[in-house]
Amino acid sequence: MLHLLNIEFLKLQRNRSFLILIILFIVSVFGANYIVYEVSTNTGHIVHETSNKSFRLFEFPEVWQFVSFISSFLLIIPCFTVIMHTCSEYTYRTHRQNIIDGLSREQYITAKILYVVSLALFATILTVACAFFIGMLGNDPISFRDFRCVFYFFIQALTYIGLSFLLALLIKKAVLTIGIFFIYSFLIENILEKNLNRLNTGIENIGHFLPLSSSDHLLMFDILKTAMRLANIESYAPENAYLTASVIYIVLIGYACYYLYKKRDL
C-alpha cells in the first residue's frame, strides 16, 4: 500500500500545477474562513446586541461545524488536482506505461484511490488546523463537542474528490472533465434536487439524497438549519440518513472506478 502511494508521490513531486493548486487550497481554506470570521465578528456584535442572543459561529465548539461548512466550498480545488493528474496520465499515456512496467491494473487503481483518500485526509487535517486556530481566537475553552462535523467534512471530501476522479477516468480530457464536474455540481444537481423534492415520492426531500447533495446536507450547520426550518423554507432528514447515503455513494464510486479500469482497454 505504502509502496503504491510512494509511486504516486514520485509522479507528483515536480508537478508544478499540482503544487500550485495545493498551496492555493491551503491559502484559500485559511483565507476564506478568516474573511468570514472577520465579517461575522463585526456584524455578530449587531446581532448580539439586537437579539440579545449569542450568534456563535467561530467559538468552540460550534467552530468545528462552521469551519467545516466554509471549507467544504473549497473542495473543488483538490478535485481539480485529481482531474488534472488523472487526465495527464491519459494524455502522456503513462497509465499504460505503468501497467506495461509491471503494475497490475488493480494496483494502479488502488494507488489512485489511495491518492484520493490521502488528499481527502489532507483537506480534513487542514480544516481541523484552521478550525482550531480560529477557535483559539475566541474566548471559549477548547471543546470537541461538534468534532463529528470534521468527520462529515472528510466524508464530503471523499465524495467530491472520488466523483471527480471517476469522471476523469470516464472522460479522459481534463478541460472537459472540469467543465462537466463544475456544471454538474453547481447546476445540474441543484436543479435535480429542487425538482425531485417537488415530486410526490413518499420520501420527504428525496432530492437531498443525490450524490453530492447528501454530503452537502451533512455539513449544514445548526444555525442555518434552524433558520431554514423556522422560515419554513426547508426541512432536513436526520444526519445519520445523510451519512448513510454518502457512505453508500463513496463505496459505489470506488467500485465503479475499480470496475472501469479493470475491464477496459487502456
Binding site: 510512494n6 514520485l10 515536480r14 508537478n15 508544478r16 502522456y92 506505461q97 505503468n98 509491471g102
Partner: peptide, 26 residues
Amino acid sequence: VLLETPNFYPYLSARQNLNIVAKIKG
C-alpha cells in the same frame, strides 16, 4: 517493453522517470 512511442512524465527528468519505473519493477 517498448510499445510505439516512449511514454514518460514530461515534467520529470530522465532519472526521476526511470526512478518510477525502477520502483514499479522493484
